[in-house]
Design a protein around this nucleic acid. Sequence first.
DNA 1: CATGAATGAGATTTCATTCAT
DNA 2: GATGAATGAAATCTCATTCAT
Lengths: 206, 206, 206, 206
Amino acid sequence: MTKLDVASERKAQIVQATVECISKYGYNNFSMQDVANAAGVSKGIIHYYFLNKDDLLKSVLDKVAEDIEKAIVSETKKAKNPREKLEMFIEVGLNVVRKNKEYYQVNMDFWTQINQNTDIRAVIGRHYAKFRETASQILAEGVKDGSFKDVNLIGYASIIIAVMDGISLQWLFDDSVFSYEKIIEKTKNLILSGLTPHNVSASGSP
Amino acid sequence: MTKLDVASERKAQIVQATVECISKYGYNNFSMQDVANAAGVSKGIIHYYFLNKDDLLKSVLDKVAEDIEKAIVSETKKAKNPREKLEMFIEVGLNVVRKNKEYYQVNMDFWTQINQNTDIRAVIGRHYAKFRETASQILAEGVKDGSFKDVNLIGYASIIIAVMDGISLQWLFDDSVFSYEKIIEKTKNLILSGLTPHNVSASGSP
Amino acid sequence: MTKLDVASERKAQIVQATVECISKYGYNNFSMQDVANAAGVSKGIIHYYFLNKDDLLKSVLDKVAEDIEKAIVSETKKAKNPREKLEMFIEVGLNVVRKNKEYYQVNMDFWTQINQNTDIRAVIGRHYAKFRETASQILAEGVKDGSFKDVNLIGYASIIIAVMDGISLQWLFDDSVFSYEKIIEKTKNLILSGLTPHNVSASGSP
Amino acid sequence: MTKLDVASERKAQIVQATVECISKYGYNNFSMQDVANAAGVSKGIIHYYFLNKDDLLKSVLDKVAEDIEKAIVSETKKAKNPREKLEMFIEVGLNVVRKNKEYYQVNMDFWTQINQNTDIRAVIGRHYAKFRETASQILAEGVKDGSFKDVNLIGYASIIIAVMDGISLQWLFDDSVFSYEKIIEKTKNLILSGLTPHNVSASGSP
DNA sequence: CATGAATGAGATTTCATTCAT
DNA sequence: GATGAATGAAATCTCATTCAT
């Protein structure tokens, strides 16, 4: 293992420990000592690999955002047509939250930095941009092959992601309000109905 | 001015100052001294009126959540039929965020307490419950008078609020992605199209 | 009731409340607010009747020390001869502690002020002086009528009080070490044996 | 110097500084800053070695109680027979207070925690238990070899310690009441007279 | 006399960061 | 690279005391 490998592995180890700490103690309630304990390293070494706590947090955000995105993209690829891809996108996106509740919450914790930390704000902004890009590519594909109505790509992508975020949020605060399975279906239906070409729906009426 | 008035006025004054501080310094970066300075009172008096920082924050959340809710409800009442009411609900809800960016962000800052503070979690949960209730009453009205399709009320209400929250969120991170006016229209259209009774849409094609 | 009566009664009420607070929260853990609550008066009025917290505490000490002394003296008077008086003195003195555990502890709390507060030190010193005086008068009576050996009065009085204090102390820390009844007897025996005239003990052998 | 040495030395240094502070400012009037200043370290390091102020105080009590005990035990060992040992025990015990007035007062300051801090109460209780044990062993020796009367060991040990504590106490409040030398003699005489076997005293009269 | 709102000093405690080893 | 002792700034919270009403 090269020196570079050791370094990046150590960094990953510390970042992972930080995720655990945020989840356990809260975004503003964990100390560098907590991270050191969780990672099984000394407090000093964290400052060797990371400039300061802010720098460490930025690395955490990078990892968390990237992980969530990867999970969705990899699953989406398996589908064969735009309609299925979009359904996958919604389903996986919502299930990621359900299955990684804590992880998603850590991601959410960074939202409070919106006003104070422009770096973090930018990272989150880019993350959403990528996310919208993924969705809009699926939409573009469907528009091209005629299975979707010709909507404004970025606009509709924004709305798709909005529903997913919003539903996750409400569920995190109270998971007894709706059935997760059913709300996924309802979301899919609404999103797809908004994409159905007129003639297609009209085709139903002779 | 009676003593009771002094007390409630002073409390309101401190809560207001806290909102400003959260907005200015960040949810986790403001001190009791900051609040005291902003309110023009001594540090001690804050602890005289509020048990501790957590207690103060809970009062802030109460106020912020209530204010947002009131704004939406009062505007919605002006509309005359369910369809218009729903459009108002969406429009006002989204505009509240745009016009009170900082205020809405303060509200959002509380989301991070989801894991750590069960009290706050409960307050937010109740706030969303009320919010869904407002939306579902509008839906019920429309279903009753036949202008809306017979949807699952709480489920559809959840989705309406989800889009609004999600759109606000993306906009807060990057307001250059979409036109706020246009996205409001798109949201309204999607939500309403999901409520249009089948025969009504069919009636469009002779 | 005259103004003076009202004042002294109010003072007594506050002092009594303070005793309760010291007993409940500890000598250094009670606040003026605690006293106000316990006395059912406002915080302000305490400062009307007492210069400050120290002044209030001095009044508390006066009362506590005096009460303990009074209890012992009044009981002692009932006995008819020096020997019985001394037995009473010891018995009552030790029982006062047992029956007024908390009260005696409040008295003890003042001992820590020995280095810092010369006023309090002086009050305690005077209290012990009076206490020794009471004991030495009993001794003097017995020496005079020949029932006691001719001991140094203040010295022996000091030792009598010392045993009583020391026994109380050990009992307060662990009341399972000795039987209170038996230790009272043993103390009496030792003290009295030290006072028995030689010829009296010699008289046992003809 | 190893790290372990540094740690235990630093702890000892801080405990010693605390003893000085308690003696100088009073049990309830010294701050962590005072201790830091006295020890010549930063405030932070005290909390690195001790959990909190209470924990530090417990360490102080441990040291003070232990030191007093050690002083007495080591001196007592030098005597050759039970009678001399007991005289030593009393003499050294009383002189420890006189020669380490401040130190003994610090020990006494902990007595006020009897109601509030069960930990400290237990430590003091154990300290007295050990102390009684030491005295009762000397008594047992004397009873065995016939130089002492057959008394209840723990009971008589309690009384011996009681006189010593009580005398110290009165002297701390007013050192002009009796001559320390003479009171030591009187105490010894009383304690020993209570232990003299009957036949021995009878042997004095032919 | 009586109240309790208001002050502000000061106490404990936490913790990011540094640096000698 | 790695450790953990040490620092010191800053934060929360308490509370005796004052004073307008």
